[in-house]
Amino acid sequence: MNWIVTFLLVGGVFFLAIGTIGLLRLPDFYSRLHAAGKCDTLGVTLLMTAIALYNLHAPSFGSVLVSWKIFAIVFFIFMASPTATHAMTKAAMLVGVEPWQKKKGTRK
């Protein structure tokens, strides 16, 4: 049990780290959103699943309720993260941030 929790925790921190490195390294705003939107969602999901599992170590009514709440947070983040990404992309499009392009003129 402890090993599963540790494994999930390490995986979650790994994906959060990837998201952060991506946020620093990628060339333009839109590709940064790729790193932010996907890796963060997965990393947070893994970490919170680990915490909820560990919390069920000594099952009682209260701890089951707390684990349900943690899963509610995970569900909410699943809903909210793409929506926030979408809002930011649309704002960037309307304001006119230019996407980074490999070759000029490939934009359809």
Partner: peptide
């Protein structure tokens, strides 16, 4: 995304459109 971010020449791997 991990593959692209950790790739040393990541700009070659990308072709946004």
């Amino acid at each position: 995304v991990t593959y692209i971010v950790l790739h040393p020449q990541m700009l070659d791997k990308m072709d946004p459109q």
